[in-house]
């Protein structure tokens, strides 16, 4: 028997059978058939003893090489099947990458509170502390200690919502300043801002809200000047409305400050040239400010011969409306999600 020829025949037969192998199972059967204990090639070694000695090495070598070749073919096929199986598995995992993801959209802080936080951060960076206080205030704290005695004409500027004769919803966060000065006992410098809700007797419309948010600031020290106020206001205006903004101070009147000013910022829309938003003036009014009235210092335990200070107040809604071009103040309190979620 020409062993080499037989092995070649077996190899050809194996190749042919492997062509039809589709599964690992098929492969196992084919492997048993060609390389198993009962396989023809496994029987060849039994013939060795019948061969002359000089032929034995060549025969043995041929059989072993033959086994390796057959085995190699099967292993190649196995690898081929394995790869195909993985391919198939992954193919079945195909996704449409254009389909929508689940909606994990974050919610968000209300735009008004976000602006409050931004202003707080700005002032914390300049060494201010943040003070809060009650919204239900006494007439004394909200008005009288701030140089607004009963029957004072300036009370018309802040038509208020009373609960009892002596209790009302605060019309500004100034009482927090009074409370802080009293807490500090007239001894140490004050450098605070006071954010919070305030209330006025107003009918709600596009530009009025009976409830709104305000931030007031107060600095009291031995050498606090109106120029310090001006520099501080310029810093806020630029932080809120952009580095290119300029401010303008105009005389005004608040009973708790003297001198009092109103502060305009150059219109961001027209860069101060004049447009519909700034009513052709080039400026937009953003806040009120002034040097703390001696009466208020005295009422709050500070000696006006030693201390002087400045105060300012800004309406948050107004800042938001100017910054984003929001046309109706009621949006802030309606909480339509189509509005609220625009400000992430």
């Amino acid at each position: 028997m020409d062993i080499q020829k037989r092995i070649d025949e077996l190899e050809t037969a194996l190749k042919k059978e492997l062509e039809n192998v589709k599964t690992m199972n098929d492969l196992q059967n084919v492997k048993s058939k060609f390389l198993g204990k009962k396989a023809e090639i496994s029987g060849f070694m039994k013939h060795m003893k019948d061969l002359p000695n000089e032929e034995k090495p060549a025969f043995g070598k041929a059989v072993n090489e033959g086994k390796q070749r057959l085995s190699g073919l099967i292993e190649n096929k196995r690898e081929e099947l394995r790869k195909a199986a993985i391919e198939e598995k992954l193919r079945k995992e195909t996704v449409d990458v254009t389909l929508d993801a689940p909606d994990y959209a974050p919610g968000g802080v209300h735009i008004l509170n976000r602006i409050v936080e931004e202003i707080e951060d700005l002032f914390v960076g300049m060494g201010y502390k943040i003070k809060e206080g009650p919204e239900i205030e006494t007439d004394e704290m909200n008005f009288e200690k701030l140089n607004l005695p009963k029957d004072h004409p300036a009370r018309d500027m802040q038509d208020s919502l009373y609960i009892t004769k002596e209790l009302l919803l605060r019309t500004h966060t100034s009482p927090v300043q009074v409370r802080t000065m009293l807490e500090y006992g007239g001894k140490k410098p004050v450098k605070i801002i006071c954010p919070g809700k305030v209330y006025r007797r107003d009918d709600d419309d596009a530009t009025h809200s009976h409830q709104f948010l305000q931030i007031e600031g107060l600095v009291v020290d031995k050498q606090t000047t109106m120029s310090d106020l001006k520099g501080t206001l310029l810093t806020i205006a630029r932080a809120m409305f952009g580095e290119k903004r300029e401010i303008r101070l105009r005389p005004s009147y608040f009973p708790f400050t003297e001198p009092s000013v109103e502060v305009d910022v150059t219109c961001a829309n027209c860069e101060g040239i004049g447009c519909g938003i700034c009513k052709q003036t080039g400026y937009i009014e953003i806040l009120g400010a002034g040097m703390v009235n001696d009466f208020v210092l005295r009422q709050s335990g500070y000696d006006p011969d030693v201390y002087q200070g400045f105060a300012f107040g800004v309406g948050i809604e107004r800042v938001a409306m100017l910054k984003y071009g929001i046309e109706d103040i009621r949006h802030f309190y309606t909480n339509d999600l189509r509005f609220n979620t625009q400000f992430k």
Partner: peptide
């Protein structure tokens, strides 16, 4: 005219922080 005043910041030194 207030607008002629210089722009300065308060000289009061203090630590700012949220409580």
């Amino acid at each position: 005219d207030y607008n002629e005043l210089p722009d300065t910041l308060p000289s009061t030194v203090s630590v700012g922080a949220l409580s």
